[in-house]
Design a protein around this nucleic acid. Structure first.
Lengths: 257, 257
DNA sequence: AAGTGGTCTAGACCACCAT
DNA sequence: TGGTGGTCTAGACCACTTT
């Protein structure tokens, strides 16, 4: 999915509502950063889309190009924007490079680029467990789509995953075939719910019962327990996953600087 | 340990050997960044010390202040430098905020700020195991100081740690009392070997035998296996640790953006 | 008061990309 | 060719720290 054109060709930059306060304690470039983040959070400038150019912003906001540059550079650094010489400035798509699930060793040769296939084990609309209701901020009585799937690579099981989605947002999702599809592009394209960021939690556990069977492990073997909460615009949680991964295929790496 | 004064009061900025090439393909600010990193790697500008001011650098290198600013801002962003208004620019000390060992839940209330005490179980000079020799780049026959210690908080065992140090660098270290000291400041102050960065690897395992006993776990309980390689200036590895941590006290968190 | 970094301006010139 | 971002300059003024 390549990036889109700038919004319309009209020169109407939708910055009308915004004016910068030069007497504010907040530096101008900070106000500009906040403004841009707000435009993104309000889905005025959407993921992957081009935003107004440096010059347009500077003119529209009545500040110097250098000040806009500083704001944009900061946001590039924070991973919010991407700039490409000759083309423009775009709202970044998060890439999840550091996600735990990228740190499962894959079979021979295939590095952490190959993506696991998945076998859906069950898919139902249910009343959420209390923990899930809390995490997803659901109202009492609101139901969720619950999907259990086994992710494998080269026919070897990697992870067993439980996925919970609010039905209010993802109605009908349970009827889709997701065994070969990436989920987040579907959320974005078909449910207008881009995933903007996520957090993950990891702890070690022991394989037991049904889970051990699915993963092809003896009970008592080490596994990694991962929880992920994924957020859409406005920091609204819209997906909860909890996964068990085979310990013998997992090794996480960080650099400390 | 506060930061030091600028090197001498003489205005002799040790940049004599360096000239920037304005015709180079590399932008000036990149050349400046490289130069500064080289000064740090060669221990000319030491950890925590002040480096020449923006104006001095600009004058010494015959570039505009803005260009120097850009280089310094980048290095601040990379965690190499710290700038303080009114005071100066300093070589940063790495803080290891994301280290795995910071993600052990501590006893009631005490967040990840409290530091575990340690009980040294053994401390000897030995011939290194093959793996350790490889990691530390040791010559054949070179010996290492091997320390095994139990780290605990509020008298509860947290981690069991094996530590390997090249004797050529840390001669005499084995005689120190390290049960209440942080190690890296000792490396820096007493062995002139500052730790500049490190990498860590994590995988889930099962507690067994002696390790289980030390950790107060039943055999078969989940544990976290962590390896750390710590590097001094010039990316030279000078410490190797491998640790086993109680799984029930560990939970790691990341944000994906 | 003198020195530091932090913000901001108003230019210039270049490299890259689309047309 | 015209528009984009990338680099660089030479200033100005401010806020903070130290002496």
């Amino acid at each position: 999915m390549p990036e889109s054109k700038p919004q319309d060709k009209a020169k109407v930059i939708p910055l009308n509502d915004f004016t910068l306060d030069s007497r504010s304690a907040l530096p101008l470039y900070q106000q500009i950063k906040d403004l841009i983040k707000r435009q993104i959070a309000n889905n005025v400038w959407r993921l992957g889309e081009m935003i107004p150019s440096e010059n347009e912003l500077a003119a529209g906001l009545q500040v110097s190009a250098g000040t806009v540059k500083k704001a944009l550079a900061d946001l590039v650094n924070e991973g919010v924007l991407v700039r490409r010489q000759g083309k423009g400035t775009f709202v970044a798509r998060p890439d999840f490079k550091r996600s735990f699930i990228r740190f499962f060793r894959y079979g021979l040769g295939s590095g952490p680029g190959a993506l696991p296939a998945s076998r859906v084990l069950s898919c139902r609309v249910i009343d959420p467990p209390a923990g899930v209701r809390g995490v997803l901020n659901l109202t009492r009585g609101e139901r969720v789509i619950a999907i259990k799937r086994l992710r494998l690579l080269e026919d070897e099981p990697l992870m067993l995953e439980d996925l919970f989605l609010p039905r209010a947002i993802f109605d009908g999702f349970e009827k889709k075939d997701i065994s070969r599809e990436l989920l987040y592009p579907i959320y974005d394209a078909e449910y207008d719910t881009p995933i903007v960021w996520a957090e993950e939690f990891l702890e070690p556990r022991i394989a037991e019962g049904e889970a051990a069977r699915y993963l092809g492990l003896k009970p008592g073997a080490p596994v990694i327990f991962i929880e992920r909460i994924a957020y859409t615009l406005g920091d609204k949680p819209v997906e909860f996953r909890s996964s068990l991964g085979r310990g013998d295929r997992f090794r996480y790496h960080i650099e400390l600087r």
